[in-house]
Design a protein around this nucleic acid. Structure first.
Length: 375
DNA sequence: CACCGTCAAGTCGCA
DNA sequence: TGCGACTTGACGGTG
């Protein structure tokens, strides 16, 4: 799966956009679309929370419908079928949820068939619960994407109206799996595989904020109960977590872990030299597949503060790729940057920036694909 | 060059 | 009534 950014086409949703970009980029779109189709990739687009089709203001609703057209156009231009989805929340409440749901359904009926065939609806983190979403789905047939974190923050009311608040608190939500199984029935063959959103709470941020990375143990605990469906992660480090989870739920061979370690190693080294050594030991047995252990060590290491000494060591490891071929000017730039960092006059980022430019210039792909410059 | 503010979108909740 | 939070990226100004 791949989530296409809403910023794909600059000014794409603006009234000022009069470029015939689908024609202009026809050859590229054809090539990319063919790659998506032949590889079995499923792409999707996620309009922001500002796309509100159920607003009482008809002008807001009109612009929201145009925004959905804007999101549909790239998918149509790639010649992708209706299993490539557009994911939408229900919108605002305006003091009366039932009326707001009715208005969503009415506005949905006026959308073009192409958009309606792509649309899926998701529970949000403060207004419409998964139960509200099922309510709308049962009357429209729109497939439901269940979001576990949103349901934890904004749980569906599973109580009877006569239950008092104490009992309600004790039985505030059904298990994720119940909702996921219910959502399965809303997906038709033309919609492709059922998809859910999975994310974890960032411990230091407001409720509902996504974590920086997916913690592997809670993910596996969640995953082992699931039927065979698609899971889209919502997480700051994006594909890093996706690859982590894939590597932990399937044996992709020790070489896949070694490749991952190659990308993580300098970051781990600057946070925790002991963990760096531990992972090296762990990967020595070439018949093993210690994915979970490796990612746990990486998670623990990256959660620690960067130490100046180990950050210098890691940077010097990276500098080792260039020390022979670098020009005198480059050598002096590196030494100055490192000295300033050690004296507290510059950030670690400025040292890495010097190294990243060298990696690009000298075509060191081992470093160009390293997470050292990202984490 | 790091850092911070600003911009676009619509709604809701809290001063 | 007005402001901040939500989200995402680019971009401009400051020191």
């Amino acid at each position: 799966m791949f989530r296409i950014s809403s910023d794909l086409i600059p000014f794409g949703s603006s009234a000022a956009m009069d470029l015939a970009w689908p024609e202009h980029f026809a050859a590229d779109l054809e090539r990319i679309g063919e790659k998506i189709r032949s590889s079995g990739l499923r792409v999707s687009m996620h309009p922001g929370q500002y796309t509100v089709i159920n607003s009482p203001d008809p002008e807001v609703a009109r612009r929201a419908a145009l925004d959905l057209e804007y999101h549909n156009l790239p998918l149509d231009s790639l010649r992708l079928g209706p299993e490539h989805k557009i994911i939408l929340h229900l919108g605002g409440v305006y003091g009366d949820k039932d009326t707001a749901k009715e208005r969503f359904i009415k506005r949905w009926q006026d959308l073009s068939p192409a958009i309606r065939s792509r649309l899926v609806i998701e529970n949000d983190d403060r207004l419409f619960t998964i139960r509200d979403v099922f309510d709308v789905s049962s009357r429209t047939g729109i497939p439901v994407v269940y979001d576990n974190l949103h349901n934890a923050i904004n749980p569906a009311d599973t109580s009877r109206p006569d239950l008092d608040w104490i009992n309600l608190a004790a039985d505030t939500s059904r298990p994720d799996l119940d909702w996921i199984n219910l959502a399965a029935d809303t997906w038709q063959p033309a919609d492709g595989r059922q998809k859910i959103h999975y994310s974890q709470q960032d411990p230091d941020k407001r409720p509902g904020a996504h974590s920086s990375t997916i913690a592997v143990l809670p993910f596996l605990d969640f995953y082992e109960k699931l039927p065979d469906i698609d899971i889209m992660l919502e997480v700051k480090d994006k594909n890093l977590s996706a690859l982590k989870c894939i590597n932990c739920i399937s044996n992709r061979g020790i070489s896949a872990l070694e490749a991952e370690w190659g990308r993580y190693k300098y970051s781990v080294l600057e946070h925790a030299p002991a963990a760096y050594q531990a992972v090296r030991q762990l990967l020595k047995d070439k018949r093993s597949y210690p994915a979970i252990e490796m990612y746990l060590l990486i998670e623990i290491a990256l959660a620690k503060e960067v130490q100046l000494g180990s950050a210098v060591t890691a940077a010097q490891h990276v500098w080792g790729y260039f020390c022979k071929q670098a020009s005198p000017a480059e050598k002096s730039r590196w030494e100055t940057a490192l000295k300033k960092y050690i004296n507290g006059a510059a950030s670690l980022g400025s040292v890495k920036s010097v190294l990243q430019k060298l990696a690009f210039k000298y075509d060191e792909d081992y470093l160009n694909y390293s997470y050292y410059f990202e984490l």
